[in-house]
Design a protein around this nucleic acid. Structure first.
Lengths: 183, 183
DNA sequence: CTTCGCATGTAACGCGTTACATGATTAA
DNA sequence: TTAATCATGTAACGCGTTACATGCGAAG
């Protein structure tokens, strides 16, 4: 389970409050790990109880910002977890189920869904490429920047894959319709 | 949510019992959608209550095989669902979190984890390529076979991506260690 | 002062997971 | 006939999600 460690990482990069974390999880880190504000608050409370993080401005009521920073124990836990060997989660994609379903009961309207996905993946790919050009085109390649670039490249590779796959799938589905005299 | 529709698809391909489904979810369909036997039994009960599937041999006690087949309402539901437009689930990968963590508190032992992943992805890629050679190298390309091939190709593309990415990541991490005088 | 928006929090549900239990079938 | 295995089932927990509630601060 990664959420606590994603939070520790984000808080080490810069201490901040729950709502700010939620905002940051909509961008950089959030491209690869999402979390709602409820998950974040729930987890921050737990991390504080574990002594891994601590609130900067002690005790203020509901509705007041509470910024957190990582304590040594939290940093140590993050180091331990990062060094562990984990099984990668197997692929899990609805689209594959839908393609199998299409094979059994098709033809269906599945191609419209794939066209919609194609557009989304193209958008995301363009966004990642823009970020890459802006943040990694020039400058000193420090360890940290190289690693951040690597993560972004994973996103670019994945979105490229999906764009290619959607095009291929549309090709199969449309050729199929055409062969059936439904152009 | 896809599990019910994955089950409907599998049962349309061939009616069978819960334990057989669990076995099939370890292979073909299971390459892209996993389910434990508990999920499967829970869901089969629900699908029967909904009238989407029906048991073939009516009523036998615990420990007896119960095969199911899809009723027309289930087939109709599957068609409806397959034609729907869904938002693709965003990427979610621990490795990206770990790379960000490495960037903040590194160096860690992360490279060992990535080497282990690399081996697993290479194995899976070899398996998929073997299946492709065995099942799709020759023969008539029917609609169904083309779609099944497409799904397998998604697996091949994804595993290829991971192999490439792991190699690239190892390159960055090792070069980094070397630069730090820790070869 | 009132209203609106933001930061935090509570509650409940659903899918996925793990541990364990029981009834049938098969093998020794 | 006993033991091992298979098929089904029960229970409980955890992360992720959705809906909604409360308290502060700023804008009008």
């Amino acid at each position: 389970m990664s959420l606590p460690h994603a939070l520790l990482t984000a808080l080490l990069e810069r201490p901040c409050s729950g709502s700010e974390l939620a905002g940051r999880f909509d961008r950089s880190i959030g491209f690869f790990w999402q979390a709602t504000h409820q998950q974040i608050y729930r987890e921050l409370k737990r991390l504080e109880e574990l002594g891994w993080i601590t609130a900067l401005a002690p005790e203020a009521g509901r509705g007041r910002k509470r910024a957190y920073e990582v304590r040594p124990a939290g940093r140590e836990e993050l180091r331990r977890w990062t060094g562990e060997v984990h099984e990668p989660k197997p692929l899990r994609d609805e689209l594959m189920v839908r393609l199998r379903a299409e094979a059994v009961i098709g033809p269906t309207d599945l191609v419209r869904d794939i066209e919609s996905r194609l557009a989304l993946h193209q958008d995301k790919l363009a966004l990642y490429r823009e970020i890459e050009g802006r943040d990694f085109a020039e400058g000193v390649p420090t360890r940290q920047r190289e690693l951040h670039h690597l993560v972004l490249q994973a996103g670019i590779m994945a979105e490229t894959l999906w764009v290619d796959f959607c095009r291929k799938a549309i090709g199969v589905l449309v050729a199929d319709d055409a062969a059936k005299g439904k152009p």
